[in-house]
């Protein structure tokens, strides 16, 4: 049980609850164990982003409970929730969302500054992360000086900088060409395998689905299938 990082209990998100209720998410029950590399798939409007927002603490469910590493995030105050996100959840967005005035290194360091980490700790972590994402030579470049794929790799480094429990990635390859997408997926796959980092993607991209070891399909806000793909290379 201690392995469970994400545990949602019958969560629902209802829009227009007092007029014509629309269930964006309906009675979703989902567990994610540490080290999983899972893809949330489904047609547009099926509720992928809404579910990701709920798990990431960016939105609150109207019904049900979300436990992250044993903490019920639905009962946290808005301020405590921001703090929880900072220390427990890494986000990778579709459109990179790096801070344009900061260099790649400063963008990744930003999260650690918010956490109040000291300079030595920040430098060690950032240097190690940039080696892992293969951008050690481009650390001091601004986002505008990097390609889309490189920017998304910096976004992954930023998400990992805070040492989160898991990474939520909302369509991370949607804006990338196939080569950049492939490089990015290789890096995330490697991080997952070597450092046991948990990833949950929402995606339409077949390349991501092909790499995932678990594919959860959402249709009309409900889980219609949840498939584990056996990976013999996994240590467990």
């Amino acid at each position: 049980m201690n392995d469970i990082v994400i545990d949602t209990h019958n969560i629902s998100r209802i829009y227009n609850p007092y007029t014509i209720p629309v269930y964006a998410i309906k009675n979703v029950h989902l567990h994610l164990r540490r080290g999983e590399f899972a893809a949330l798939v489904g047609p547009s409007g099926s509720g992928k982003t809404t579910l990701l927002n709920l798990i990431g603490g960016l939105d609150k469910p109207d019904e049900g409970q979300i436990m992250i590493n044993g903490t019920d995030i639905t009962s946290l105050s808005p301020s405590a929730l921001i703090n929880f996100r900072l220390n427990n959840i890494g986000f990778v967005f579709q459109s990179f969302n790096l801070i344009p005035v900061l260099t790649a290194r400063e963008n990744a360091e930003f999260i650690m500054l918010l956490q109040g980490r000291n300079k030595k700790e920040r430098e060690e972590r950032i240097t190690q992360l940039f080696k892992q994402i293969g951008l050690a030579d481009k650390m001091n470049r601004r986002p505008s000086e990097l390609s889309g794929g490189e920017q998304q790799r910096v976004a992954v480094a930023r998400a990992l900088a805070s040492k989160p429990q898991f990474i939520l990635a909302d369509e991370p390859t949607a804006n990338l060409d196939s080569k950049s997408a492939s490089v990015l997926l290789d890096i995330m796959y490697k991080l997952n395998k070597e450092e046991n980092i948990t990833f949950l993607f929402s995606t339409h991209d077949q390349r991501v689905i092909d790499r995932a070891r678990r594919v959860i399909t959402l249709v009309d806000g409900q889980i219609s299938s949840d498939t584990n793909i056996i990976d013999t290379s996994l240590p467990h």
Partner: peptide, 12 residues
């Protein structure tokens, strides 16, 4: 919104 999402406190 993105800054709050990644964990920047509103006071900061």
């Amino acid at each position: 919104g993105m800054l709050v999402a990644i964990g920047m406190k509103k006071s900061k």
